[in-house]
């Protein structure tokens, strides 16, 4: 799943480790989520959204929904 975490983190000048600390996860988890290797659970996605003061939809792109919309056009 594509997401905006890297950009949002860069805007705030946070390292992966700093973000990981705030979320209570490992730096490797943040890296895996950022690179799309791992999709976070709903509670973790909510924590991320809360931290960046955004909605989940603003951070994570629902690729399946985007593909459906593209196909409909």
């Amino acid at each position: 799943m594509k997401n905006m975490i890297k950009a949002l983190r860069a805007e705030r000048g946070w390292s992966q480790a700093a973000l990981a600390d705030q979320l209570g996860v490992s730096r490797q988890s943040v890296n895996a989520i950022e690179t799309g290797k791992y999709d976070p659970s709903l509670p973790l996605a909510f924590s991320i959204a809360r931290l960046f003061e955004k909605s989940i939809e603003e951070i994570f792109e629902d690729e399946a929904a985007s593909n459906t919309e593209l196909a409909a056009e």
Binding site: G24, V25, S26, Q28, S29, A32, I33, Y38, P40, S41, L44
Partner: peptide
């Protein structure tokens, strides 16, 4: 107890 990615 560990985070979900590491757990997986």
């Amino acid at each position: 107890e560990t985070d979900e990615y590491n757990q997986m």
